[in-house]
Simulated assay, not measured.
Amino acid sequence: MWDLLSQPEQSAVGRLRAALDQHVRPVVNEYWERGEFPEQIVDPLIEADLMDPVELKEAGVQPSGLYAGFRNFELARVDASVATFYNAQSGLFRTTVNLGGSPEQVAALDPQITSYQYKGVFALTEPEHGSDIAGGLETSARAAQREGRSGWLITGAKRWIGGAAQADVLAVFARDEADAQVKCFLVPTDAPGVEITKITGKTSLRIMQNADISLQEVWVDDSARLVKINSFADVASCLRNLRSDVAWIATGAMAGAYEAALRYTTERTQFGKPLAGFQLIQEKLAHMLSNVTASLALVTRLTQQQQAGNYKDENSALAKMFTARMLRETVALAREVCGGNGILLDNDVARFHADAEAIYSYEGTHEINSLIVARAVTGISAFR
């Protein structure tokens, strides 16, 4: 799959690998155990200029979908939380602005997003609504006037919003009281009425700082509304794009777990020879590698189709469903071949094993994605 990238894209991904090895890999286990985000890794990731890399500018080409996919793959190969953090800006937030904003909004904001001058997160999920968010979304938006300006008052709550405390703005999805349609607003995190609280006690993605958000009569100017998002169908078009990002993250985490297990089993000696020399261990390593390879082939082909303009809910749902399931299986095998030491952070496998559980559920649970796929196959919706 690597050979499908152009030479400038390979060069940019290579720079990312070097930055991850130097700045991220040495600290992730410590910060995972502490449940904190290593702020010192942010500047090196920004300086790596990954969203619009210099190699592609010099070649006069735009970053391809495959480049963006391999960027997520490499990030997740080192740590799923770091990949999720970076993708919150490069994927979730940027996609929402680029698909939901007017040409003027996109022209003004996208350069600031790619340079990290304007940091944002995607705020859709609510305390009582995850899988049923399409019909259950309760956060409300009411048109209002303030000091002669048109704007909106937003009230509600959001949950599981990753990176909210580190962001400048929240892309808040709220239901317009006038027409009951879902719309999107860019809400500054320091606006009066916004309260952000870190979610504690997590056993997965502990580096990623997820938050509860309370919004009480929060005023935003009318210019803060992304004008192309006027219904949940428009939100769904964003999610269709974003599920492929998560499938790449799942595949990268899978590769990271496999590589950690391979490293451990070739170094660990039992009964006078490396663990990797035993038939049962070799079968599991081959099984893990087949999962990684099949998943990488699937997300590569999905991305090629999307690059050609072929976006289908069932395709991205299938990719997310399959890769997350293969991730779960792969990390379990990786933990297994490491024996008791597989639960130690020092060997990396334990972190991938725990983080897989969050990836399995976010951006559409296995069950919801299965229903999207089966609806396309049968022509019958089982959601209601």
Rank of each mutant, 00 (worst) to 15 (best):
P103H: 10
L109G: 09
D110P: 08
D110L: 05
P111K: 05
Q112N: 11
Q112T: 09
I113V: 14
I113S: 08
S115R: 09
K119N: 11
F122K: 06
A123D: 00
T125D: 13
P127N: 10
E128W: 13
H129C: 04
H129T: 07
G130Q: 14
G130L: 08
S131F: 12
I133S: 06
G136H: 06
E138C: 07
T139H: 05
S140H: 09
A141M: 08
A143D: 06
Q145P: 07
R146D: 05
E147D: 15
E147M: 07
R149M: 02
R149L: 03
S150I: 07
S150F: 13
S150A: 15
W152L: 00
L153E: 01
L153G: 00
G156Q: 04
A157C: 07
K158S: 04
R159Y: 14
G162V: 09
G163V: 03
G163E: 00
Q166H: 15
A167P: 05
A167Y: 01
V169W: 12
A171D: 02
A171R: 02
A171I: 01
V172N: 05
A174M: 00
D176Y: 05
D179G: 01
A180M: 12
Q181E: 02
V182S: 00
C184D: 08
C184Y: 09
C184P: 12
F185T: 00
F185P: 00
L186M: 07
T189N: 04
T189V: 07
A191S: 05
G193K: 11
V194W: 14
T197M: 12
T197H: 14
I199T: 14
I199P: 11
I199K: 12
K202L: 15
K202R: 15
R206C: 04
I207N: 13
